[in-house]
């Protein structure tokens, strides 16, 4: 045995604690840039900061293109998150409930969008839409987002359904209820937190998605496309930062809410859900 005393397992060591906090600082430093410079009274994004202003927010809110892009993004996000969660729910239910031959192949295929570069997906979709003669529009963007969001939704829902007590559904069938009504009277109320969490997360993924939208856009812009065009001209920087700060705050609220729901929803049969 060595001369120095053994360190106890799980004992807090200062080195790693400090590292973890530094890492957090590295993660959040750039994100603080957005709100800080969005209130800075200067056109050039650089230190030192010269003064405080809300001018950039006013300028940003005054732009009709921004309103249009925001509204487009919300439409695309709602369509994509609803559709993807529906597909994700069907797949998650099938995977967790039944022994299906060829299940792993199907699961691999459904998870594939997480593992291929978006540019590849974007190009492939662009080509097939062109071959099929589909006009690019917000709908084609939403379709691309459905592909991208479905594996996210499936992952969230599988995690919840995995611990689902199968005998609850069997009890409902046994009491005379049909499969479809069993889903609505037993399964759905119990997995509702996970469904809401899936809707929120997929909405955020779609809302933030740039590259697929870039490839599949028609004449209308989504918000990331609008921001992208804003980032090309330095004169547009400050209002874009203002917009970014607002998006930041809203997504933090949504993410914390979704995570909280997801955690609350993994409590197994013990949680309480109102119907």
């Amino acid at each position: 045995m060595s001369a120095q005393p053994l360190k106890k397992i799980g004992e807090r060591s200062w080195g790693i604690t400090i590292f973890a906090f530094l890492y957090l600082a590295f993660l959040y430093a750039p994100m603080l840039v957005l709100p800080v410079f969005s209130f800075a009274d200067q056109k050039v994004i650089d230190f030192p900061i010269k003064g405080f202003t809300t001018h950039w927010y006013e300028e940003m809110f005054a732009k009709p293109e921004m309103h249009k892009a925001l509204w487009n993004s919300i439409q695309v996000g709602v369509i994509a998150s609803l559709t993807a969660t529906l597909f994700g729910l069907l797949a998650a239910k099938a995977i967790t409930r039944y022994a299906i031959p060829g299940k792993s192949i199907a699961m691999g295929l459904i998870s594939l969008p997480l593992f291929i570069p978006e540019i590849l997906l974007g190009l492939a979709l662009l080509i097939i839409l062109n071959v099929a003669g589909v006009t690019l529009s917000l709908l084609t963007i939403a379709a691309g987002h459905v592909l991208l969001c479905t594996p996210f939704s499936m992952a969230v829902l599988v995690a919840r359904l995995d611990g689902f007590d199968k005998s609850l559904e069997e009890a409902s069938l046994d009491l005379g209820e049909s499969g479809w009504m069993t889903f609505w009277r037993v399964t759905f109320p119990l997995i509702m937190p996970a469904v809401v969490s899936s809707l929120l997360l997929t909405f955020i993924v779609s809302f933030d998605e740039f590259l697929l939208a870039f490839f599949l856009q028609g004449t209308e812009q989504t918000l990331p496309l609008y921001i992208w065009s804003g980032l090309r001209f330095p004169s547009n920087f400050p209002p874009t930062l203002a917009l970014g700060s607002i998006i930041l705050v809203v997504s933090i609220v949504l993410v914390v809410f979704a995570e909280w729901l997801r955690q609350a929803g993994t409590g197994g049969g013990k949680m309480k859900v109102g119907v």
Partner: peptide, 11 residues
């Protein structure tokens, strides 16, 4: 049926 886990609907 009366299930082994009772399967009381938790909601």
């Amino acid at each position: 049926m009366v299930f082994q886990s009772y399967a009381i609907f938790p909601h």
